[in-house]
Simulated scan of single mutants.
Amino acid sequence: MAQKTALIVYAHQSPASFNAAARDVAMQELAAQGYRVLLSDLYAMDFRASATQDDIIGDLKTPGHFQYGDETMSAWKEGRLCADIVAEQRKVEEAELVIFQFPLYWFSVPAIMKGWMDRVLTQGFAFSLTNMYDNGVFKDKKAMLSFTTGAIQSMFKPDGINGDINVTLWPLQNGVLHFCGFQVLAPQIFWGPAHCPPAVRAAMLDGWRARVKGLSEERPLTFAPCDLFDLSFRGGFRLWPRAREERESQGFGITTGHHLGKPLPPDNQTRAHPDPRS
């Protein structure tokens, strides 16, 4: 049997951080399961976050009106992307599982990790209008977010001051990972480790180690399937009328994003649920 490969994309400046400890736990446990573990330590690599025309080798297609997406797609097709992007794309290609490990900054990933997403997940390589969501390029791969918060868990409840964590996670999990086709595993959230005593932090890491042991058996999160939508410009890529009608009697929307004016389905972005068509 061919060896499995996992990629950890990691963003924290300090080797003494809780994020570093969570990274190490994942690397150790995956290696113990026989994975070849690749690491992209973005700060140590001094990974460049800005998506600019420096990412392209050679002449631009339209130098008078630079459009990053179009230019990088052409460069990807022609083998003219810069070396650091190509190296990261090779890692993604090799990996069956991608884990993003980071501290939550301003309800999102740190800038250096957002830059990795902007620059590495180029059009053509990671997505197209015909290869997106459950028809996406990476539909045979799994990905997940593993992150720390500065806030305690109750602050991210639907009635908490920060709002529902499911809403916070929707842009990253649906708009980045699922958009590229990844099967998205439920996030690993370490709630406020900086506010916890050492024994609690140790228990968090023990729980993460136990979870990593069983990651291969986990069911991914569910998202609205593409066949519910009219995937044409004429139809506006909107829900088919029959699909909307079928859900009129249901108490919740389809997903956090496709709420249809209904209450959000509970824990839609934090826990695996049955297929919304069932």
Rank of each mutant, 00 (worst) to 15 (best):
residue 198 P to E: 12
residue 208 W to I: 00
residue 185 L to C: 04
residue 184 V to A: 08
residue 190 F to L: 02
residue 197 P to S: 09
residue 212 V to T: 12
residue 215 L to I: 09
residue 185 L to W: 06
residue 215 L to M: 13
residue 211 R to G: 05
residue 195 H to L: 14
residue 198 P to V: 02
residue 208 W to K: 05
residue 199 A to K: 07
residue 200 V to C: 03
residue 197 P to R: 02
residue 187 P to D: 14
residue 184 V to L: 11
residue 206 D to K: 07
residue 185 L to Y: 07
residue 184 V to D: 15
residue 204 M to P: 06
residue 190 F to Y: 07
residue 199 A to E: 05
residue 200 V to K: 06
residue 208 W to F: 11
residue 186 A to G: 11
residue 185 L to V: 10
residue 204 M to L: 12
residue 214 G to R: 02
residue 199 A to L: 04
residue 201 R to W: 03
residue 188 Q to D: 13
residue 195 H to E: 15
residue 207 G to F: 11
residue 206 D to H: 01
residue 213 K to W: 03
residue 197 P to V: 06
residue 209 R to N: 00
residue 212 V to F: 01
residue 192 G to P: 05
residue 213 K to F: 00
residue 205 L to Q: 04
residue 186 A to E: 09
residue 193 P to H: 09
residue 206 D to A: 03
residue 185 L to I: 09
residue 187 P to H: 13
residue 211 R to M: 06
residue 211 R to W: 13
residue 186 A to M: 12
residue 190 F to I: 04
residue 193 P to M: 12
residue 198 P to L: 14
residue 202 A to W: 01
residue 193 P to D: 13
residue 187 P to R: 07
residue 206 D to T: 05
residue 191 W to G: 09
residue 194 A to D: 15
residue 200 V to N: 10
residue 193 P to Y: 07
residue 188 Q to H: 08
residue 205 L to E: 02
residue 205 L to T: 06
residue 208 W to C: 04
residue 203 A to F: 11
residue 189 I to V: 15
residue 185 L to D: 08
residue 213 K to E: 01
residue 208 W to Q: 00
residue 191 W to K: 07
residue 185 L to A: 05
residue 185 L to G: 09
residue 190 F to D: 05
residue 184 V to R: 12
residue 201 R to S: 00
residue 203 A to H: 15
residue 195 H to Y: 14
residue 202 A to P: 02
residue 210 A to S: 12
residue 208 W to N: 02
residue 190 F to N: 02
residue 207 G to V: 14
residue 192 G to C: 15
residue 197 P to F: 00
residue 189 I to A: 07
residue 192 G to Q: 11
residue 199 A to S: 13
residue 193 P to A: 10
residue 188 Q to E: 03
residue 215 L to T: 00
residue 202 A to I: 12
residue 209 R to D: 00
residue 191 W to E: 03
residue 188 Q to G: 08
residue 203 A to G: 13
residue 213 K to C: 05
residue 211 R to H: 14
residue 199 A to W: 03
residue 186 A to D: 03
residue 209 R to S: 02
residue 200 V to E: 04
residue 212 V to D: 08
residue 211 R to D: 12
residue 204 M to G: 12
residue 205 L to Y: 05
